[in-house]
């Protein structure tokens, strides 16, 4: 038994060290709220899509405050690449930021300066200027990680499998029924819809 201890410790180190080095788990900030909430909203969006920006700026904040934070909605945000010139690059930076638990900072920075980097392609500057120098360095390293690109492809493939054709698309799941909303729905309309589902 005594001779097993060093081996066990070595095995434990082999498992723990990579997990610690990788930082927070991949989806810890893209999915927010309680997974047991009565309604799940799966949001497919593209960071260079103007209507996704509209949804992010005008609908999501109130949705998160009134429904996600109160346990009524579980929001899962997915990458879905359209054919904009910098869709992939912006998603890559957001995904890399997510790996270190900075998804919301990257997301907010990308949408806030969308018009600028959409013309110049300066996605690195847009995201990293919103992060600390240490976090920006980590993000720049993670951007080169093939698993980041794979995660984005996987999310896009998921959207395609669910018949997502445009962004933003919200798939509202309630009582096993999936209902797509394929536009930048305004918060008052979404609120009415969600309240109706919650009362039935």
């Amino acid at each position: 038994m005594t001779s097993m201890r060093p081996l066990a410790a070595a095995l434990a180190l082999l498992l723990i060290v990579p997990a610690v080095a990788a930082g927070p788990s991949g989806n810890s900030t893209r999915a927010i709220g309680s997974p047991t909430a009565p309604i799940t909203i799966e949001l497919f969006s593209d960071f260079q899509c103007p209507h996704c920006k509209e949804l992010h700026d005008e609908t999501l904040p109130s949705l998160i405050t009134d429904y996600v934070n109160t346990g009524k909605v579980y929001l899962v945000r997915h990458y879905f690449l359209l054919k904009f010139p910098y869709s992939r690059l912006s998603a890559t930076y957001a995904c890399a930021a997510e790996r270190i638990g900075r998804y919301d900072q990257a997301c907010d920075a990308l949408y806030k300066t969308q018009q600028s980097w959409g013309q110049t392609g300066k996605v690195d500057e847009a995201v990293c200027s919103a992060l600390s120098p240490a976090d920006a360095k980590k993000v720049r390293e993670l951007v080169k990680d093939p698993s980041v690109a794979m995660e984005i492809e996987k999310d896009t493939a998921l959207g395609v499998s669910q018949n997502v054709k445009s962004t933003p698309t919200l798939i509202v799941v309630h009582n096993g029924k999936r209902t797509p909303i394929e536009l930048a729905v305004s918060y008052p309309m979404l609120k009415r819809y969600l309240d109706g589902m919650l009362t039935h």
């Binding site: 909303i181 536009l183 930048a184 729905v185 305004s186 309309m189 979404l190 009415r192 819809y193 109706g196």
Partner: peptide, 10 residues
């Protein structure tokens, strides 16, 4: 009917 309302609102 609210889904149609969303289309009109858009």
């Amino acid at each position: 009917w609210l889904l149609f309302a969303m289309s009109i609102d858009a």
